[in-house]
Nucleic acid binder design. Structure first.
Lengths: 362, 362
DNA sequence: GGCGGAAATGAATGCGCATACATTTGCGGC
DNA sequence: GCCGCAAATGTATGCGCATTCATTTCCGCC
């Protein structure tokens, strides 16, 4: 038996020695147990167990010419780069007066967790692992580590995407203006907003609307507004009659804007570009002494947790985040299976959740 | 120049050919630019750019004997294995009556996103990547892929942890009863609860308390209850005078339990084992026609988003999830740097967030 | 008992890179 | 212009595994 370096992880050679077979047999026993005699398989498994052998993924990847891992590039939040110092507990507990603070965790919607899980489950089903990185413009750092990369919109420069795509399959996530040549999976935001507004106008018969928008340069907001316009057109509501005010997707600003809107004249329905804005709208409406949905119906968009717990709970459009993650991995696998296929652009349906702020019927 | 297979990703050999140098020089130019003449470096960089070369992580890992990646094993949620079928948009949008539903995303607290980001940032700082997997008991699948593994409590069997730990550094997360021999990073839940209750008893002077607990077999609940007991003892409140009722960490059940408690006799303070329970308590208290905090003060635990948006906002204890993720990676690096050091057990401090449901002062 | 073919196993090679060691180049000093 | 040394570059090897091809073993059958 060759000398085995102690301290180092055991390799196929160690297992082969222990089981008195060749490394080829060890490899086969692991990868394709059927191809080995039950007796030898037994011996090899025994050796593996005793040594605590775990195959080296890098070596396997090198030999296989595939890593068996997919990458997911998440957007970073601006306030997020402060992974604070260790700060072990010295026994004291900080007590903070948090009244008035409404942004428990930086105000960012935390639905990426869902996307991640959808992707992880799908990767796992295919025996692959999932590598996660936060977009920092480049993404070269993980391109060499994976068989495919799922990239959220606006987490990499177009240039960087093009470069990486030249080497590895790439799928764009939640980018409704996806580059032509690259696969994409997105969510049908426009149709979601359209369905929501059609409910307000068509089912509830409300024709006096106002729209609480997001920042003027937000692509997300633009798409949602398109859906709004379509719904209005479908029901012959003059879109010029709908007052539009821009917020910043945040609750506080939304409350201000909504208050101004109401002071001017209260609309029968206030359609908000996202849930945070809708929460702000509720604040303003309550402050104005009006009731939701009796005086004003309010709608949000996104399906954040807090919306369901608001008073009243907010009607919203929920994006299928978990499905988005799963679809991304499937798209990568399809691309790997057929590298020459035409670019695929998959659009997942959203779901309108009617809650008390804008109920099924008045 | 050797023939280069088209379609395959370029390698050091291709770059070497293009730049008319040896692969060793290419490798050096990439890894340690200083060790190469500016002129050659220039040529190599040029070739790299033209070919779109990206180093193969597996090959690098094999040669380096380290993967440059850390693993994070997240708990899976029971309801989570349904990464639904593709279901592309056929143009229709499902409209659901979601009134009465208070569990938008399975009811699970989504703070793992924060842990993930903390870990990712820390890994990135050290030039490493982060591999994410959902615990399925084993975890062998990724042990061979990483230089170290951060494992959430109860995501792997003790047996599996022991095996993996024999091959790769492992750090246990949020496991306050961490196995002696393995590094761990956890959060000081007991002290958080203690500080919170000391505020209620000491600052607010309330001695008539009730505790809305979690499931009887929950380790988290047990730890928090310990903190409760300590606070009571510190202020000489007889712990037998504190009524304890068990819920299931969910809002609906908590509301029932709280209602029973109140019907029996309303306590001056209702301490809840987590935020979801506190939300349920608010429901019950409101239904009973009582006011928070005037008639009953309510406290939660966790710091979920919805707690801050509740009416009134819930006083709670927030866990430093991002710091937890970062600390986990640092612990792995410390372990790698000194494999023989004694096991480290780091405890991070929590923070008490006082909000309207249990304000700084009455 | 020996033969032929299939099944099982072994030996050897390459995956792409880093690096120890060998070789060449460049440069100062005489 | 030549010697000697240091810096720059090249050559060769191994990392751990999968796999091809060669060899051996095992069986059924004559």
């Amino acid at each position: 038996m060759a000398k085995r370096k102690v301290g180092a992880a055991p390799t196929v050679y160690d297992v082969a020695d222990a089981a008195a077979v060749s490394i080829a047999t060890v490899s086969r026993a692991v990868r394709n147990p059927e191809s080995v005699t039950p007796a030898t398989r037994e011996r090899v498994e025994q050796a593996i167990h005793e040594l605590g052998y775990v195959p080296s993924a890098p070596a396997r990847a090198l030999a296989d010419r595939r890593t068996g891992a997919y990458g997911l590039l998440l957007p970073g939040f601006d306030d997020l780069e402060d992974a604070a110092a260790p700060a072990p507990s010295d026994g004291s507990v900080r007590i903070t007066d948090d009244r008035g603070n409404r942004s428990p965790i930086g105000g960012a919607p935390l639905y990426y967790d869902e996307v991640l899980r959808g992707a992880e489950v799908e990767a796992w089903r295919h025996g692959a692992a999932l590598l996660v990185a936060v977009g920092r413009g480049q993404g070269h750092d993980i391109a060499g580590r994976v068989d495919g990369l799922a990239v959220f919109a606006r987490t990499m420069t177009d240039d960087a995407i093009a470069r990486v795509a030249g080497r590895t399959p790439v799928v764009l996530l939640a980018d409704e203006q996806a580059a032509r040549g690259i696969d994409s999976v997105s969510v049908d935001n426009a149709r979601g907003m359209r369905a929501l507004v059609e409910h307000v106008v068509g089912e509830l018969g409300i024709r006096d609307l106002a729209y609480l928008a997001g920042p003027k340069d937000s692509p997300d907001d633009a798409v949602r507004r398109t859906g709004l316009g379509q719904a209005l057109a479908a029901h012959k509501v003059d879109s010029r009659s709908v007052r539009v005010r821009h917020g910043d997707f945040g609750r506080a600003r939304a409350a201000q804007v909504a208050a101004e809107l109401i002071a001017e004249r209260a609309p029968r329905a206030l359609v908000c570009a996202n849930d945070q804005s809708a929460l702000g709208a509720l604040d303003a409406i309550r402050a104005a002494g009006l009731r939701v949905p009796d005086d004003i119906v309010v709608t949000g968009f996104d399906g954040i947790e807090a919306g369901a717990y608001a008073t009243p709970p907010i009607t919203t459009v929920r994006q299928p985040m978990r499905a988005l993650g799963g679809a991304a991995i499937r798209a990568l696998e399809a691309r790997i299976a057929d590298p020459t296929a035409a670019p695929q652009h998959l659009t997942l349906p959203v779901e309108v959740l009617l809650r008390e702020s804008c109920p099924p019927a008045l």
